[in-house]
Amino acid sequence: MSDHTTSVVDVRDLVIEFDTPRGRSRVVDEVSFSVSPGEVLGILGESGSGKTMSTQALLGLIDGYPGVMGGQIDLTFQGERHSLLSELPHFLFEKRGQLEKQERGWRKHRFKAMASLWGRGATAIFQNPRRSLDPLMTVGQQVLESITAREAHKPDDTKLNKEAQSIEALEWLERVKMVNPKRVFGSYPHELSGGMCQRAMIAVALACKPSVLIADEPTTGLDATVRAQVVHLLQDLIRDERCAMLYITHDIREMLYLADRVIVMRHGKVLERVSTEDLKDRSSERHPYTRTLLEAAGMIGGDNE
């Protein structure tokens, strides 16, 4: 792991729990990871392995009860460290032998703590591109809105004016390689294809200029060719923007292509941490689960081969 002083994101011993009819279940169990500036960390795992939950915790977007119950999340933004969970113990109390959380108070605190970090500190691209764009706004308006939200935090004299903002919005649509950016600017999401929606979403997210982008299975539900385009696009833009990325997927090929380091998760636990180079090396010793994943993707031969 990289050392704590230079990392953009530093998650330690994160615990997330949910109440279910069968009692409390631990979805994320003492997960730790960190991301250095400009680095791409891949999180690999099957559905329900807690990979999405651990990144949503970073954004403070977990809604179920009780949610985040322990650990540390540090987010470095403009040279300043923000400890998101430092106040958490004040909101926890014991009741009938079980740890409970003051949900309302915590929610309030969480919103206050995240207010300056959402967008510029960290932001996300979600799985389903159609559902993550506002159906009633044109794509251009949505990119523009990200830019406006970002500019709102700046001191008055350095703010971009309205005109410069719309020019930038159009530039973003060009940068995500829209064929006809001017037309796309005035289009509604339902008029675009799935791949175009996801590219628009990338534009909306990166227009916030985040220091870390969370990409939560951005290629799920897209065609194979479109997938490749989206992955290439993400890689190029991340490099240009010097933005760190948490890339979540269960597709090991995308992972090998994009990520610098990979953590493998299952049942809410981190099973293995490897560099991509290491993962590509077929001869090296692997965790049995990672081996299964590699085999499933046809990356290494099965046992009977």
Partner: peptide, 27 residues
């Protein structure tokens, strides 16, 4: 509140008041 795009608006740093008044109430 559970829709992806509203969560995305939050994640992109839009003001909660704007999300409620513009994106939800108006749109």
């Amino acid at each position: 509140g559970a829709e992806d795009y509203i969560l995305a608006h939050v994640a992109h740093g839009f003001h909660p008041l704007k999300i409620i008044s513009y994106h939800i109430l108006w749109l």
